[in-house]
Write a protein that binds this DNA or RNA. Structure first.
Lengths: 204, 204
DNA sequence: GTCTATATAGCGATAGAC
DNA sequence: GTCTATCGCTATATAGAC
């Protein structure tokens, strides 16, 4: 982290350029998927030439991965030094996430489209998607286990299975909402699901 | 429907050709999505020239729509003259569908990938996907309503919401299964979900 | 760090012969 | 009904000037 310094201005300009490209690329990948997006188009909309864009990202795969990893880093990190949420608090936290997603439709579409694309052969986001889902499953499973340990939930609850179910509901409702926003209120539906789940987790 | 006849052989050859192309196209679209698939590739794998393929399907959009509509027609039709299933029987029917999907991973991927792609701008399958989901929602909602009418289910059940939830679980589990088949037993998870749902629908 | 120019390949689509 | 040939366009990617 130490070492020679460079004029601050250079860094700032470089980072802003890079970050602007990532922002534009996110929108394009979300609107057209990986194969449907061209570097030329991203470059145009970011106000740079295609060759200029390539100075920052060697190829299309690298740009996609950079977009996805940046979003993971910014959305899935807990505030510094905070204990992981467990039990009811974790479920309520997921309600807040779903409510937040209704306000960022572009980001929601990015994840929906690219995760589904990533189930196909040789997709550049394949390992990103698999790892991400394993990590999310483990995290929610821990939240459920924490609820069992604290006595909030029954001790015969299958935490791993409940975790898969929560994720499935979130993704499935989001898909229906993206297809037909007027017909599906995903936040309301998820809130209802959570209430039902809670009844079940707390026992008869 | 009446009018001049042609030698039977010609029809048969034509239909088999067409059907072979559709089969190959289905596999390619499932493996690479719409934008990731090229007509040239489909033609090669179907053992025909690209121009030959174009004799049967005028353009790429038409071919995709033909693939999707053929699969809808073959998978979502009830046996002739059969009454629609309602209540518990309809839920059990959906368990059978999910179990069937585990044996046809290619078809499952086709629907997952193309439905997600269809949430993007100007996708050729957009209206297919929206219409399909409206139709499935309505069909399951009717099944739930039938269960209420017959007294199997409580009469304060929100049939439309339950329908959205069932579809969400099916799609969400399928996505996790496609990404990580060893980690997710979607049929078992769906069976468990259905059992829990049934308890709730039948009341305290 | 950004540009113009260009290489190379693949795409969807059309025309016309057989 | 199927083919070869080809058009016009766009894609990713590279080289080298400023």
């Amino acid at each position: 982290m130490a070492g020679e310094r460079r004029p601050r201005g250079e860094y700032t300009v470089g980072r802003e350029r890079r970050s602007g490209i990532l922002q534009t690329a996110l929108r394009e990948f979300a609107e057209h998927g990986y194969h449907g997006t061209s570097l030329n188009r991203i470059a145009d909309r970011a106000g740079i030439s295609e060759a200029g864009l390539r100075h920052h990202f060697a190829n299309k795969d690298a740009l996609l991965v950079a977009v996805l990893e940046q979003r993971d880093a910014s959305s899935e990190r807990l505030p510094d030094g905070q204990e992981p949420l467990v039990g009811v608090a974790d479920l309520e936290h997921h309600i807040a996430i779903v409510e937040g997603n209704t306000a960022t439709i572009e980001l929601a579409r990015l994840f929906t489209v690219l995760t589904a694309e990533a189930t196909t052969r040789d997709h550049p986001a394949a390992s990103w998607a698999v790892d991400r889902y394993r990590s999310i499953r483990a995290s929610i499973e821990q939240g459920i286990r924490g609820g069992i340990a604290s006595g909030e939930f029954r001790d015969d609850v299958d935490a791993a299975r409940v975790a898969r179910q929560i994720i499935a509901i979130m993704d499935g409702l989001q898909l229906q909402w993206l297809l037909d926003p007027e017909a599906v209120d995903m936040a309301a539906d998820f809130r209802e699901y959570t209430a039902e789940l809670l009844t079940r987790l707390r026992g008869e």
